[in-house]
Amino acid sequence: MKIKRWSLLARVTHWLLFIGVTVGFITGIPIFLGFKDPIYSNPDLIRTLHYYLTTIPLSIAIPLIILRGIEVLYRGAGEESWWPGWRDIRTAVKIALHWFGLSKDYPKIGFHHPMEKLLILAVHSGLLLLGASGIPMAFFDIPSEIRNLFILAHMIGFILVSIPLAGHFMLAINPVNWETLKAMFTDGEVSLEWAEKHHPEWAERIKELRVKAVGE
């Protein structure tokens, strides 16, 4: 049985973020780490890509993120909310303890993995910093007295985005997650078996809702 995991809105937003962040990362990393990009050794091309192919998808994605937030709120924030709470932090600690072999208990995972929520928060905060500092630097003549603050904010934003995304990328290429990755590419649906395995709390709630619907 298939169940919906990613709405169309979530998928479109994700791929827009993917394009913007990937291009931004590839073209921005030479500036941060200090090397001339071996693939695109033309600085003008790098700059154009960095200014436009990063900014445009992300500028489209931001209103979609807001829309998605409204959608989640409308449907009831509950378990689909990506805002991490104390429960998520506690769960994340339990998972970490289990991962390092310090605890046998593995907590039940809801719609979002608690680490995923922390990741989303870091990435969104980082993107906000990157946009707020990068767009003025790229497209406006900001006073030189405060330009270094924008550069610093851009660097911090870059770190906030790139560290969790390195983890996110590693999880995405992990074969156990290919089903949800495929869902992100296609119709957004995963099997109930996959959900039971990876997000048991969410799967249970789906099953309860279905039983209730059938009963009614």
Binding site: I159, S162, G167, M170, I173, N174, P175
Partner: peptide, 17 residues
Amino acid sequence: LFLTTTGLAVLFGFIHM
């Protein structure tokens, strides 16, 4: 910070895999 943490994220990602 960037090099260490992204390196650790990739390393843990592999171990996790």
